[in-house]
Design a protein around this nucleic acid. Structure first.
Lengths: 336, 336
DNA sequence: ATTAGCACTCGATTTATCTAAGTGCTAATT
DNA sequence: AATTAGCACTTAGATAAATCGAGTGCTAAT
């Protein structure tokens, strides 16, 4: 499955030209633009062979070639040169990710920034494997409590519990103890289940209030797709979406949480994973690629994925995600 | 500017048929479907007159008629019968709006529900005219403070402030005082400005921390478009969007906060307001209608607007919003 | 005041024609 | 053996012409 140098050059030229132009690439273009020292006829012969081997495809018989999924894969694994980001891009990222707020704010900023920079939607998924460090209760009024959860890695989440009866100070203290004893060490994403366990075994005195807290925290802390930064203006301008049906399909994919959740669950465990077109198990995604960054600290914090038609500048995307990742590592390593 | 009964019947038939079919309505359709006791020729004469008066338009000379903005306006003001919602719809709404969480959660649920029910995007705008009752600070760690803002009507908002230096207990107490003295009574939406005033006149000791708080609260509390429930699957299916350019334009409008903010600022002060097509000042919106509900308690809490091509079932939309409003009134009147 | 009758208009659909890009193959060349 | 010039061939896409049908506006009759 190895290609000689000339084939490699041709394949990489086709991929890069197609990524830029969105038009099938012909033999003449390759000779002219990419300085191959051969005639178009030679290139044609080689392209035929590359097509026979499944690296290239021909939309129709009198058209140029476009990369197949296999072609993109070979390019990504063997041919792609990692581009350095331009100073402009670096500045843009640095200015957009201010580090304001907690980890979640930070990831959201990163997600928006990447989406804007690449002109593709990004999907931010939170893992919440982080575990609870402690819980505080703050009395707001007689009947309203603010429940504040602090995680080991510094995530702070809260929810409001509205009760029907007035809560005496004792109860609040007692409740704080109960919550801390039972929940310390629990992963954030499992708080809901843990609390329901507590409810089922604890005195019924607390069950109403615990129910409220459980429901509130479930909404704040569940894992899964958190946010889609959908830079729609630019994505719909892609020639891939000049056909309304395709545009609709894509929009549909983006708004179907299940598809995204299950697809992103299958991304590799490495920091960087690339799924191209039909490599995707989900058939609706067979014309799209997902390039995703697992955000790791001690634990898997979340995942930031770029979704796009297969035609995307993989090199720039990877560089961007890597740069974002280095920023994360930097910010995480700083003491809070 | 008053129309005789027959013209009214014809106009309302054209509007209702066009709302349903999205096709220009011809004289024969009206006679057949709406039981007018006249021949198509008579209807044609009347339609001609209605067109001369600006109530109807003809896409081209050999087509049927469609309502003009003026025609829709007359229909909405004089002809439209308010439909009762079906039990199905009422159940759907009742089950979707659970009343969980604070006011903001509630409005978001309502916005999503209306969007799903009508198959149109909804825009939720929050006003935050509600004023600050008190502010508490909670120390999370040496360097992290949780700032909790409580409003008069029960909204609770918070943000995290991360500082570079360790904050002594005294400082926290002092700061709490400063914040309460300066911010009590301030409308939530003006907290940012109020805090910056404080910063400019207070001792520089607090300026870093106040800056953090100011920034954090600005993000939590600013007024304006809060959430767009964009039920994209169904909206893009409308025949109005079979042309990609129009679809893009609409998507663009939805993602341009400025357009929506300034348009919604001009909506009437009544609980229910309807802006049709070119009545809109913003030229980009001249083919769209906005039907919006101002949500009032003591103060103006926010606005829930449906945005759509001019062709929308105004009657059902109005009924839905009115029903939602009655639910709000019910929930607000209950004590917390 | 209403309507039957009819010529007319124009968008939409279909069919035919043309063009340009790019191929694959063969035979000649290096 | 590798490369390339030459050429017939294919096909998408653009343009033009032909046809169809829905619906009109006007005139004259009822």
């Amino acid at each position: 499955m190895s290609l000689d140098e000339r084939k490699k050059k041709i394949l990489s030229s086709v991929v890069e030209d197609y990524i830029e132009s969105a038009e099938p690439v012909g033999s003449k273009t390759i000779v002219d633009k990419y300085n191959l020292e051969y005639s178009p006829a030679t290139i044609r012969n080689e392209m035929k062979l590359l097509e026979d081997d499944g690296y290239l495809e021909q939309p129709h018989i009198s058209a140029g070639r476009i990369p197949s999924t296999k072609g993109y894969r070979y390019y990504v694994d063997n041919l792609m040169k990692e581009k350095k980001l331009s100073m402009l891009d670096i500045n843009y990222i640095d200015n957009s990710i201010t580090g304001y707020g907690d980890t979640e704010n930070l990831l959201e900023q990163a997600s928006d920034t990447v989406s804007k920079l690449l002109g593709r939607p990004t999907i931010l998924t939170l893992k919440n494997e982080d575990i609870i460090e402690s819980i505080k209760l703050l009395r707001i009024t007689d009947k309203i409590l603010l429940v504040i959860v602090m995680s080991k890695n510094g995530t702070i989440k809260d929810c409001v519990a509205k009760l029907t009866d007035i809560i005496p100070e004792d109860t609040v203290n007692e409740l704080t103890k109960v919550l801390n004893i039972n929940l310390k060490g629990t992963p954030l994403e499992r708080v809901y289940y843990a609390l329901n366990m507590v409810i089922s075994k604890e005195l019924t005195t607390f069950s109403e209030i615990l129910g409220q807290i459980s429901e509130g925290l479930r909404r704040e802390l569940n894992s899964g797709v958190k946010k889609i930064s959908n830079n729609v203006e630019s994505i719909l301008e892609l020639p891939e979406f000049s056909d309304v049906e395709k545009a609709k399909n894509f929009v549909n994919i983006l708004s179907t949480k299940d598809i995204l959740d299950s697809t992103l669950a299958k991304v590799s465990n490495n920091e960087l994973g690339i799924i191209i077109g039909s490599e995707n198990k989900e058939i609706l995604l067979s014309e799209y690629s997902i390039i995703s960054l697992n955000i790791l600290d001690d634990k898997n914090i979340g995942n930031l994925s770029v979704i796009s038609p297969k035609r995307i500048d993989y090199s720039k995307t990877v560089s961007t995600l890597k740069y974002i990742n280095s920023k994360f590592k930097n910010l995480f390593s700083k003491p809070n």
